[in-house]
């Protein structure tokens, strides 16, 4: 029980100290999980991270589940995950509650109109960063463009594209189109 509580607290700390998730989380994980507690080695963290990126869901949550499971089995995985989502739940509920009350003030509206422009640029930068790791040959470029164009013009669930692309990835690899 003490271990479960420690896992919860350690990952809540990681959650509070990380802005943005993803790679931003690595230094905090290193400090809390590797240096302070010795629960995993740096190499293990990188392995969890790599698998976390290529399994469904939020990478931070996947990594938390891995570390928790390695320390205390299934309950450990669950407590570590609850720890990492706890700060978000509290902070976002407070901010969302406040913002809802101020949303009609003209200055707040102007501020968010400016912020939306910034969000466009942040998404563009995220795409540019992911592009490097994802588009390594012509077949991948084709898949990406097909998904982009279809999802701009059609009203299909993203699930359709995900399932289709996983199948296409296996097919392309089998056909030997990959890497050309």
């Amino acid at each position: 029980m003490k271990k479960l509580l420690q896992l919860f607290v350690a990952f809540a700390r990681v959650g509070v100290m990380t802005f943005g998730g993803g790679y931003a989380m690595i230094p905090m994980l290193e400090r809390e999980v590797v240096e302070k507690r010795g629960w995993s080695s740096s190499e293990e963290i990188m392995d969890y991270y790599a698998v976390g990126q290529c399994t469904p869901g939020v990478i931070a949550v996947n990594t938390a589940t891995f570390v928790g499971y390695s320390q205390a089995g299934v309950p450990g995985g669950i407590f570590a995950t609850l720890g990492i989502i706890f700060p978000s739940l509290v902070i976002i509920c407070v901010i969302a509650g406040i913002l809802t009350n101020f949303a009609d003030i003209p200055a707040v509206k102007s501020a968010f109109a400016g912020v939306r422009v910034c969000v466009c640029v942040l998404i563009f930068n995220a795409v540019a960063k992911l592009w490097k790791g994802a588009i390594k040959d012509k077949a991948a470029l084709l898949l990406c463009l097909v998904v982009f164009v279809l999802s701009v013009f059609l009203d299909l669930s993203p699930v359709v594209y995900v399932v289709f692309c996983a199948a296409a990835g296996i097919l392309f690899t089998q056909l030997g189109v990959r890497g050309k």
Partner: peptide, 27 residues
Amino acid sequence: DAAFYGLRPCSVGLIAAAGILVVRIAL
């Protein structure tokens, strides 16, 4: 590995398309 070779470009395409929706209202 082969499935993820297909899934990575898919994520890029889907996120870019979602970005277009933000561009529409912001710019």
